[in-house]
């Protein structure tokens, strides 16, 4: 073996707990098996890691527990493909591979002293959760925190109880919405960008952080522009098919920018400088 670090070799991790969030999303709470590695593992909110199910493959997920809470690393996984399908079959005690942290992170330093509005759809809440919890753990550094979060139906809202508890504790202002009316839902109905327009958070000294399906992001960015948010105050996190996660395999580029190492977090100002290929 060579003295070079091997960027492809995962560390072994153990699943501590599996939380069923929605019918197709599970959260996996894991820890690295090696104690020294566990102690020295550091990351920033918004960074991602590659999870391996050996024999099936690897896929990229954001670490959605904040670095301020070290008892486990949490990943929320929606079942959509081969790797996520196999991940959903795993249970507490099972082993998987973990490679990370990878990529850049949310510019939380630049957000200090500002109000923050989170705008999320579906599984897109997962990356924002990291930053949200991080801010709650440093609550004094940030102003008002508002969350607009939507999903197809009530059952598809991720972290619902957790966020409602934050609201009840007065830590955040929360608007939950679903796409279609349903008998078990008394809350808002409507698409996220529309609710955002209704909420109309003042753009002054405020940062918007958004993630969700591509179509939702597109309309959210348009809404934020109408609300007067400057491009550098709009932050999003992108997804691309990734393999290596370290900038070599060549598929996650947008122009000369690689989502896996230069991203996944970009401000709208940065996105505008990239070729239009999303």
């Amino acid at each position: 073996m060579s003295s070079l670090p091997n960027p492809y070799l995962p560390s072994l991790a153990r699943i501590l707990e599996v939380v069923v969030e929605t019918p197709d999303i599970k959260s996996f709470r894991v820890e690295l098996c090696d104690e020294a590695a566990r102690e020295s593992f550091t990351f920033e909110p918004g960074q991602v890691a590659q999870l391996s199910v050996f024999g099936t493959g690897e896929a990229t997920f954001v670490i959605n527990s904040p670095p301020t809470r070290r008892e486990y690393l949490q990943f929320s996984v929606m079942r959509v493909g081969e790797v996520t399908g196999r991940l959903h079959m795993l249970q507490a005690g099972d082993k998987l591979g973990l490679r990370g942290p990878l990529g850049n992170h949310f510019p939380y330093q630049d957000m200090r002293g500002k109000d923050v509005v989170f705008v999320a759809g579906g599984i897109g809440m997962a990356p924002l959760r990291t930053l949200l919890l991080f801010m709650l753990d440093n609550r004094g550094d940030y102003g008002r925190i508002r969350v607009v979060y939507g999903a197809r139906g009530p059952a598809n809202l991720c972290y619902r109880q957790e966020m409602e508890a934050m609201r009840d504790a007065g830590q955040i202002e929360l608007i939950l919405t679903v796409d279609q009316k349903s008998p078990d839902w008394a809350g808002q109905v409507g698409l996220v960008p529309n609710l955002l327009m209704e909420l109309a958070p003042p753009a002054d000294n405020c940062v918007a952080v958004t993630c969700g399906p591509p179509i939702m992001i597109r309309y959210t960015l348009a809404a934020l522009e109408k609300l007067g948010f400057a491009d550098e105050n709009v932050v999003t996190t992108l997804e691309r098919r990734m393999k290596c996660g370290v900038g070599l395999c060549g598929r996650c580029n947008v122009g000369g920018t690689l989502i896996c190492v230069d991203g996944p977090v970009f401000t709208r100002a940065q996105l505008k400088a990239l070729p239009d290929e999303f």
């Binding site: 391996s52 024999g55 690897e58 393999k243």
Partner: peptide, 15 residues
């Protein structure tokens, strides 16, 4: 440009 995939057979496999 390259791809990375797993192949396994029984209790053994390779990436």
């Amino acid at each position: 440009c390259f791809n990375i995939t797993d192949e396994e057979s029984g209790l053994k496999g390779e990436r």
